[in-house]
Design a protein around this nucleic acid. Structure first.
Lengths: 212, 212
DNA sequence: ATATAATGACACCAACGCGTTTCATTATAT
DNA sequence: ATATAATGAAACGCGTTGGTGTCATTATAT
């Protein structure tokens, strides 16, 4: 990506082709993500956004109106991709591990951090992220638990989700831990399931009878 | 607090007395908190900090060097107060409820949000907050559990802490929930303890048997 | 072919905000 | 008493940045 600054030279001028036109919008949003992630909304300048997207500042304003427009559109489009779209046939444990891996990825942690930081200025983004993320995840967990363990056990889905993200999520939000590994996600998922007695298949025997 | 702007008029000039001198520092830090909380580090201006503290901008620079200095000193001094200093004789459930109440207070949520937002710019503040907060809280929980249930049960302290803060903490970080009530904190603590089978030992009569 | 829409490059502006300077003022040190 | 340190008030320098204007350039519409 160093070439961005080195031989910037002259990009193609003039009216873009129809193909270029449809690409431009997502091109800008894609390029905006890393900029906002490492600089934050306030510190990121529109010139940086333009340079990252290899587009003129003028074009950014023509597409999104202002800097806040780029930000909100970017977060909104990302929020819709947060929801988990995995195979329906996998086991609860596999689903949980995949969730942890995704939730603790550098990208989603950064997005979360960004939205938390700007939750006062852009409250609707916080709502959007929550509705598309946490709410969907818990629903999905509940559905899996119900299939494997019945409706009553499914009521524990919120607590399972809480244990899944756990402290590591908070630590990562604070920048105190690197992104999770696949192995780490599996271990974390297994531990959370074990605590709630949801590990293993079929038999509804809680491994800790005192918990109920 | 409205008088801040209304009859600003003229404050006392000249060299302060010794008593005023020692007050000045904490006066600035105290006044800086609400400003940073509702504006964020980037949007808060030094003039706002000065006005809130009823002190001249000059004095702020003389005490803290720059805006970042005010911010880091404020967070650091607050971080040391995060740790729970309650009575040692209370029950685990009472301790847990008090913890939830404090952790979900508007003030600590705001502080957390602030530190998360600036964790890239001020990584050491994140470390400080974590060490003084989460680490201390978990240790304190572990100590209580050990006294009431033994060393083995005490190993669950991290998971208990996770369940205690739970989803409400994340929601509040996103600005999606108002500050917790005392009653809400009690219920949340009771639910978390019940899940881990840590409820009801030292005369801890559940005031709501239906909660689990 | 001609008009027009959309872009890149670049200059430009106005606002803002950090940090400094100046000067009057008041307590402290000696 | 006199010098000095610390402050309030106010102005200001100066860099940064969001957003616009201008013009050349290129594709599209008709």
């Amino acid at each position: 990506m160093g070439d961005r600054d080195t031989f910037e030279a002259t990009r193609k001028r003039g009216r873009p082709t129809a193909e270029e036109r449809v690409e431009r919008r997502s091109q800008i949003l894609d390029a905006a993500l890393p900029v906002f992630l490492e600089r934050g909304f306030g510190q990121a300048t529109v010139d940086e956004l333009a340079a990252a997207a290899r587009v003129s500042k003028r074009t950014i304003y023509s597409y999104f109106g202002d800097k806040a427009g780029v930000f909100t559109e970017m977060v909104r489009s990302l929020a819709t991709t947060v929801s988990d779209r995995g195979p329906h046939e996998e086991t609860l444990e596999a689903l949980a591990a995949r969730m942890v891996y995704r939730l603790d990825s550098a990208e989603l942690i950064g997005l979360h951090r960004l939205v938390i930081a700007e939750s006062t200025r852009f409250p609707e983004l916080a709502v959007s992220l929550h509705d598309n993320g946490e709410v969907q995840h818990i629903a999905r967990l509940a559905e899996h638990i119900r299939r494997e363990r019945g409706a009553q056990a499914a009521e524990r889905a919120p607590e399972l989700f809480t244990l899944l993200v756990g402290e590591s999520h908070r630590k990562r939000l604070l920048g105190l831990m690197p992104a999770v590994t696949r192995e780490g996600a599996r271990e974390q998922a297994a531990a959370a399931l074990a605590i709630l007695g949801l590990r293993g298949i079929a038999a509804a025997e809680p491994h800790d009878p005192a918990s109920l």
